[in-house]
Amino acid sequence: MAEICLSANNLTMKFGGLVAIDNVSWALHQNEILGIIGPNGAGKTTIFNVVSGLYTPTSGEIVFKSNIINGLPPYKIAKMGIKRTFQQSRLFDNISVLDNVLVGMATLSKGTLVNSLFRRKRMAKELDENIQKSLGILNHFSPFLAENPYRKAGDLVPGERRKLEICRALASDPDVLLLDEPAAGMDPNESAELMEDILKIRDIRKGIGIILIEHDMAVVQKTADYIVVISYGKEIARGSFAEVSSNPLVQEAYLGSENENA
């Protein structure tokens, strides 16, 4: 078995009286795609918000490369090598496609702020390398984006936006990538393309661990190696897709949620 790169141990997150995540544990290995699934409002996105540092967990710990990282600010966690995408894509709309990816490389820079202002020659060289790399990543996912690096991100269609968001996250060669419902609002064709993209990520970044939060069972079935199912913040099942999908608790949780929409 490959090495564990990121794990959550007895993670709990409370908002006032509401328990959004209740004592959840999981481990992500290198080269693995871990699916975290569950009905709407199960607390999936909250897990990502905790891992990426936007929230500090109430109890439990998140371990990354044998360091406890809960409580660290988001930018430090990103710098350590954990990157994410967002359910409703959060691109920098008024700057270009290329600039979006270059921001994604913020953690790569060896130079400090002062350097970036005054060490012009070295910075110019670094910029040149970064541009080359950005175009490479863009080309991998969407030749259209690579050909239009100066297009405003806000002018892209939703499919391209999602791809650009993945490129931005991958630009700094992260060790862990968190994908938050990338198939949300997509038709079957688009999600088929997305599944390919997700599998592609492992080609360009060997050893990366991916956590995929998803509502769309087809996407999970096709991509995830291992699945954890949560409902109302609690884990209710784990295993391969075949195992969890035959679990009566999982079926109940999913069917029971069809009618509610909160």
Binding site: S52, G53, L54, P73, P74, Y75, A78, K79, K83, R84, F86, R90, L91, F92, V103, G104, A106, T107, R168, A169, S172
Partner: peptide
């Protein structure tokens, strides 16, 4: 938020 999660302080 996206800026933070991209590693910008």
């Amino acid at each position: 938020i996206a800026a933070k999660c991209s590693g910008i302080n």
